[in-house]
Nucleic acid binder design. Structure first.
Lengths: 118, 118
DNA sequence: CAGGATCCAAGTGGATACTG
DNA sequence: CAGTATCCACTTGGATCCTG
């Protein structure tokens, strides 16, 4: 139980920082968002859904999300290979929040488009 | 009205990406969080609340939040100077989400501390 | 199909010193 | 008190080519 001596300080930094490390970055939010819409997506589907992401970044981001237990990677040992990604239970807990953020973001974008109120 | 031709593509990238650009980064979440707890904070108070942030980053982050209209900067022209920061209406809209994220993050941290369930 | 490897550019954050 | 300014290290992300 020696771990207990090092973590409390992390907690004082508050969950907000922790959470942002988990879902921050350029693509994590969007990947979680699309997984929440489609339930299950293959690697190639994700790649087509987010055309601006390179294979390197897509792979790297998916690995991080998997290591953080936010998504589940299911490999089918077939030829050609097939890999499916879906949200874990922990990842699912983030969806209400991602939805909220999405709506907020859309609203801001629309306000930027129609700056007629000031 | 020529703007209308360039933004739709931004929207298709979905609000999630936009929102993460606005509140991503190493300190924005925590600053918003603390402003939501205290309503109003001076520069020095923020600095003491987040001891790990340098003045450069604190100033820079506050400027970005202000430019994005998420916080309000109120200067008092006194000697010594006094500056107060608070959430804007738009920034306030993010608080439910920041709270949600905070709770989620705390829970994750506690689970990491007590991995007795698997 | 689903990546892995490598190299490089840009961005982000830190240390330190100084100021109205 | 509330910042600026400068220089530097590290991290993140992109381009390109290759593979089981």
């Amino acid at each position: 139980m020696k771990i207990k001596s090092e973590i409390p300080e992390c907690i004082k930094k508050c969950g907000v920082e922790y959470a942002f490390k988990r879902i921050g970055g350029k693509y994590k939010g969007r990947i979680l968002w699309h997984l929440s819409l489609k339930t299950v997506l293959r690697y190639g589907e994700l790649s087509r859904t987010l055309p601006d992401i390179t294979t390197k970044m897509l792979t790297q981001t998916l690995r991080e999300l998997e290591d953080d237990k936010l998504i589940i990677r299911k490999m089918y040992h077939e030829v050609p290979p097939k890999v499916e990604y879906s949200l874990s239970d922990t990842g699912l807990e983030l969806i209400p929040f991602i939805n909220y953020l999405h709506n907020w973001g859309q609203k801001q974008l629309e306000n930027e488009l129609l700056p007629n109120e000031h």
